[in-house]
């Protein structure tokens, strides 16, 4: 029985680890804003269109089916992909907001954030380099 329990626990750990790899939220190195989890959520849900300092924010995302995207939406925004897309379809088609700009890969994301001080994005924590600043981890 004990063995079964151990196997079960190990499986659960493995599953939760594989589906929720750690994601880092990144901004340009020159960005001096500090952002808490609540602010990041508001930015990705289109409720805040500027950084707390008042400068405009350009929101970036990875593809819907990228593992980092699913983890980020689930842990930082508390929404599954379909909930997130349903939510945004209400904003995007009624003039309430512009969905995040989609980038093809973690490398593209790092380059885009490095190049533009107004951006915010996320990548799998293992992909982070010194070219960008990590402001939160989920």
């Amino acid at each position: 029985m004990n063995l079964l329990k151990k196997v079960f626990t190990a499986t659960v750990l493995l599953v939760s680890f594989s589906s929720f790899a750690e994601v880092s939220v990144i901004v340009n190195n020159a960005n001096a804003d500090t952002l808490n989890a609540k602010t990041i959520k508001r930015i990705y849900l289109g409720k805040m269109k500027a950084f707390p300092s008042g400068s405009k924010v350009t929101v970036l995302t990875l593809k819907d089916d990228a593992p980092a995207t699913e983890s980020f939406r689930q842990s930082a925004l508390k929404k599954s992909n379909s909930q997130f897309k349903s939510y945004w379809s209400k904003l995007a088609f009624t003039g309430k907001g512009t969905p995040a700009k989609e980038l093809a890969s973690a490398a593209d994301m790092l380059n885009a954030v490095k190049a533009d001080v107004s951006t915010i994005g996320f990548v799998d924590s293992s992909a982070v380099t010194g070219d960008v600043k990590v402001i939160a981890k989920f």
Binding site: M48, S86, S89, K90, F93, T94, G95
Partner: peptide, 26 residues
């Protein structure tokens, strides 16, 4: 960043979800 003005033609929000009623996915 908090305030937007729009000019033209829109769905008229009689009720809470009037402007998204055509978007079944939402």
């Amino acid at each position: 960043p908090e305030t937007t003005l729009s000019f033209g033609r829109f769905a008229l929000p009689y009720f809470r979800n009037s402007d998204t009623q055509d978007i079944g996915y939402s």
